[in-house]
Amino acid sequence: MSAAPPPIAQSVIAFNDVSKFYGEVLGVNKINLTIPPGITSLVGPNGSGKTTLMNLMTGLLQPSRGTIEVCGMSTNDPETFFRAVGYCTQFDSYPKGFTGFEFVYSFLRLFGWDHAESEQRAWKAIERVNLVEAAKRKVAGYSKGMRQRIRLAQSISHDPRVLILDEPLNGLDPLVRAETIGLFREFASEGRHVLISSHVLHEVDIISDQVILMSNGYVVAEGQIKGVRDEIEEHPIQVLIRCNKPQMLASKIFESEHVVEAKVHVDGGGLLVKTRNAGEFYLMMNRIATMNGIEVETVAPVDDDVQSLYEYLIGGDEGGSK
């Protein structure tokens, strides 16, 4: 006989009329959400309330009004809650003087596990983010992408049922970005919650099962990603690439039919590309870079176009909850 499925409250993240005010300033207002397992993306421009929502969910902030339950648990019981929840914040800061391994390992000891268990879990998590070789180096000497990955390792090291990630793809190069996305998918396929925030719609488009659009502290749209996907595909995204041979890269990337425009940056150290399919573009760029010995330093979507896309999606009705 198979086990009975858990009650619905035990398998969803539920916000009930949640508001957060910083004095007079609105953080988020009247949030009512029920988030099922799978990959859910919280999308909105900077200052829309994504981080506030995640911080409320994990108890880093207390709601001014309303209640939040994560799979039936509350942050009032941190010993249970944080065994099931992992949160990778966007704070790019670390305890001083730690190596990558020490950072992950030391916080695992807070779970009450002994040295052997904590060590084994730390290495497993570091392996999953592909950072084994740098694990014994000080975090202070890591690149931005490596720091992002070690934070990710720290947040998954205890194998959480709910993984919350604030802008997790920031600063990652295309290859690592693909690996990281694979990791999220793996988590979600095991029936867990993966909640990702991003201000770049195109970024989460390819990985999300559902999306929550936020603007000015309100949820303005939520549901399956499919509805907004068509709009996104029609709307070109701008990507800034810093590399050592921008002219060569510019000459090659027009092999992709999705590339609309490419401009070499005025400082000669990069180029700005407009594409209708970011996912395919990243793959193609990787291939070109490998074949032509181009060293890509960073790849980052540029906000401007996304902002206009929001305006298009959200329209004039930014103020109300849906």
């Binding site: 800061s93 305890p95 807070l110």
Partner: peptide, 18 residues
């Protein structure tokens, strides 16, 4: 000091009573 260094949240996100 940890508030200034922005690293206190690692403790607050661990399964340990405050």
């Amino acid at each position: 000091g940890e508030m200034l260094d922005r690293s206190l949240h690692y403790y607050f996100l661990a399964p340990i009573r405050r």
